[in-house]
């Protein structure tokens, strides 16, 4: 025997109100801290992130709100289980076929094909389904992004960009859906004031039955909660994904006297083309117009060449280390010696 329930007959408990408040806070907060991360190149997103204290602060807030949402989800599972299994209440939270038909009837009514609007809380049940699916998708993908190293040590690397893409796309879809749906549910249809024609209640359990089930449920619920919270805590705190500070690169900045292990003919050619050598000895080191010697294919030793460059001669200026560092002399010699 089924008994139809009126909404007035079961006002929301304080716990349920708190749960709903926490859910709204978490979802709105996650949207406010998450969507700007999706649209970082947009001005409005940048302003929002500044108001949130910067991108890193927004990410921390997003994670804290995600923890709140996970807590709400865990509590909700426990609360529904308690209602259903201990108290024996059939809550009819998920939409059935008749709820989808009611939605279709509502559209037909709007379009003038039906005389009367359907009654009931079908819109709330459809919304509930979307919320449950979305929370599961966003929580799973969010946890993957939280610990990418742990995830990629067991799953393919592609999992991370896929999770990021789904998390971002689904969050957008979810937020837009919620805004539009709440406009319908709260603003236009006033669905929460509708009588709930679908909620059923099984025959009330005796106090003894409830008490017996409570004795079994409470320790199980506590155990499950502890296990889930402990597991999540371990997972969420186990990984340091990145080092906090990128180490500064060390470089020898001022090194005019550096002598490489071997000469580089490419550099030697460039030095030749840009130094005064070519002015007298020719652009290709093949000799100057005034009889200056050709240097290409020179068989001068490096020491002799170095001495000539540094000391010069009556007809050739000396080149200082500032003008032609030792390394460049080596490169020059390498190019001249290698050239035929």
């Amino acid at each position: 025997m089924e008994k139809r329930m009126q909404p007035e007959s079961r006002p929301l408990s304080a716990a349920a109100r708190f749960e709903r408040l926490a859910l709204v806070l978490a979802v709105v907060g996650l949207a406010l801290t998450g969507l700007p991360q999706r649209y970082t190149q947009e001005r409005w997103a940048e302003i929002t992130l500044v108001l949130l204290g910067g991108i890193e602060s927004a990410r921390i807030l997003h994670r804290l709100l995600a923890v709140l949402l996970l807590a709400v989800a865990i509590y909700h599972v426990l609360a529904v289980s308690y209602q259903r299994w201990v108290l024996g209440r059939h809550l009819a939270l998920l939409p059935r076929l008749r709820d989808w038909r009611a939605l279709l009837d509502r559209v037909l009514y709007n379009l003038g094909f039906k005389a009367n609007a359907p009654e009931g809380r079908y819109a709330l049940r459809i919304e509930y389904l979307v919320v449950v699916i979305s929370v599961v998708i966003l929580a799973l993908t969010g946890l993957m992004l939280w610990n990418p190293i742990a995830v990629t040590s067991r799953l393919p690397g592609e999992t991370i960009p896929t999770a990021r893409s789904i998390h971002s796309d689904h969050a957008l879809l979810f937020v837009v859906f919620l805004v539009l749906w709440e406009l319908l549910v709260l603003g236009l249809w006033r669905a929460r004031q509708q009588p709930d024609t679908a909620q059923l209640e099984t025959p009330a359990r005796s106090a003894e039955q409830v008490s017996r089930r409570q004795r079994l449920f409470v320790p199980l619920a506590v155990l499950m909660t502890v296990l889930v919270v402990a597991g999540l805590t371990v997972f969420l705190t186990a990984e340091q994904t990145a080092i906090p500070t990128v180490p500064r690169r060390e470089a020898i900045v001022f090194a005019p006297q550096l002598l490489p292990e071997s000469g580089d003919a490419r550099v030697g050619a460039a030095v030749w083309a840009t130094s005064r050598c070519a002015f007298c000895h020719g652009a290709d080191a093949g000799g100057g117009v005034d009889g200056q010697p050709a240097l290409r294919g020179s068989d001068l030793t490096l020491d002799a060449f170095y001495e000539q460059v540094r000391r010069g001669s009556e007809t050739m200026p000396a080149f200082s280390r500032e003008e032609l560092p030792d390394a460049y002399v080596l490169h020059l010699w390498t190019w001249l010696s290698a050239a035929q």
Binding site: I252, V253, A255, P256, P325, A327
Partner: peptide, 9 residues
């Protein structure tokens, strides 16, 4: 590279 030899290398 005349002064910044290590970087030029």
């Amino acid at each position: 590279g005349r002064c910044h030899g290590a970087i030029f290398e």
